[in-house]
Design a binder for these strands. Structure first.
Lengths: 234, 234
DNA sequence: GAGTGGTCTAGACCACTTC
DNA sequence: AAGTGGTCTAGACCACTCT
């Protein structure tokens, strides 16, 4: 039903830029009004529609006008997939891969107990031969007990989804900018005045289990984060 | 009730990092379970808690950790309010304020027609005497026809909300990092190797009308964007 | 099996706009 | 006053986790 609504919006089946009222939709789709509200809520969060109490529900004209710019992104989870590759091939160079005991900090972030171990994975990501990101991550052994060097040299998220039926759907990330260290400069081919962007945080599985703590240092010219923010709660 | 829950979380009243189950909360607060769910949903979207079906609701350990002194919260729009000042006073220094014809690009971004005019506003934001952000914005005259130099030296969003009954609730933003220009260095007091973070995008009124195109250049050490991303809605 | 969150229903009443 | 979205209730049933 959500999907149908979205399709109809794209199909321009609401030339008034206005949706039927919730009660009608509820009847038309044979679901409760609450269910309709949930669906509309999703569309509103994606910036596709907006609701005006007392007036109705309208299609965001800008969404239709300029789809490339005004669509919800901010959903950058699978890194390999979320960077535009522009014809270039994404590569991964494994820098370090070992099993280490979880530090106190990791224990807290990943919900581990003392004595638990984690994979420490350090990788360099490239497009063709151009490195653009240093990735430093920790994954609990008990969540992914079968990580091999081969897996870790590819997309870990894809492996999990395809082979382990585990889906990463949430992340808590914090982003900032920083001058590059000499290490960054060497690995990413930057000059001293060229900075990096840092994204760090935790990835969660579908069920809320924290799955990976990750620190990503990116060439500033390969980093661009788009987000559609709605401020209404609280 | 939402507020109370949030306060209790901040107060560390759940040392287990675990909240009571929804049915108990529902009883404790004397509201329906649906209402509790709505409240928890808000907290979950803010990344404060996460829920594990079948297990319970837990507090995000990272949330408590990332309370840096100055940071821009991903879920806030009014800039003045969204920087934590830690006792310091946020100030605004007006650098430039004039009316200019809208360029072709502005016409597109702000939904204007050729011949329309916009305010061009350039401001420096400071905490006490420490500048941390250069703000360069454009606002259509026809949306806010009464902007004065006085208004523009304070919080424009607050003015709109308090005096004009217009609320800015949405924004489409893109973020990146860049080396600082000599201009940046002069205005923000940076050295040559210190970078800036750039946030640029469009603010919308709550009816979807684009209200401002803004470009913000921040000292890298005053920028920190937290975001909780959920990838499931289709 | 008991406990917990997820989804959904059917309906009441409130708040805002003017369809 | 009529229409429309917002909030809330009380409860049913499902899906998953824990032991």
């Amino acid at each position: 039903m959500l999907h149908d609504l979205k399709a109809r919006i794209h199909d321009n089946q609401f030339p008034n830029k206005r949706l039927p009222d919730e009660r009608s939709l509820s009847e038309a789709y044979n679901v409760s009004r609450s269910s309709i509200k949930r669906a509309l809520e999703v569309l509103a969060n994606q910036g596709i529609i907006f609701k005006k109490r007392g007036s109705g529900t309208f299609i965001n004209p800008l969404y239709m006008k300029n789809q490339t710019i005004f669509h919800y992104e901010g959903t950058n989870l699978g890194i390999t997939d979320s960077f535009k590759s522009d014809g270039q091939t994404p590569n991964i160079k494994l820098l370090d891969f070992q099993v280490v005991p979880a530090t106190a900090e990791l224990q807290q972030d990943l919900f581990l107990e003392s004595g638990d171990f984690v994979y420490e994975i350090k990788r360099l990501r490239l497009f063709d031969d151009q490195p653009f990101m240093i990735e430093h991550g920790y994954i609990p052994i008990k969540i992914a007990p079968e990580l091999s060097q081969k897996v870790v040299s590819g997309s870990i998220f894809n492996y999990l989804e395809d082979e382990q039926n585990k889906v990463v759907t949430k992340s808590f990330m914090t982003m900032r900018a920083a001058p590059s260290t000499s290490d960054d400069q060497k690995l990413l081919g930057l000059s001293a005045v060229e900075p990096i962007a840092i994204m760090e945080g935790i990835f969660f599985l579908d069920d809320g289990t924290p799955f990976e703590v990750s620190n990503m240092r990116l060439r500033y010219d390969y980093f661009n984060y788009n987000t559609f923010v709605t401020l209404d709660e609280e």
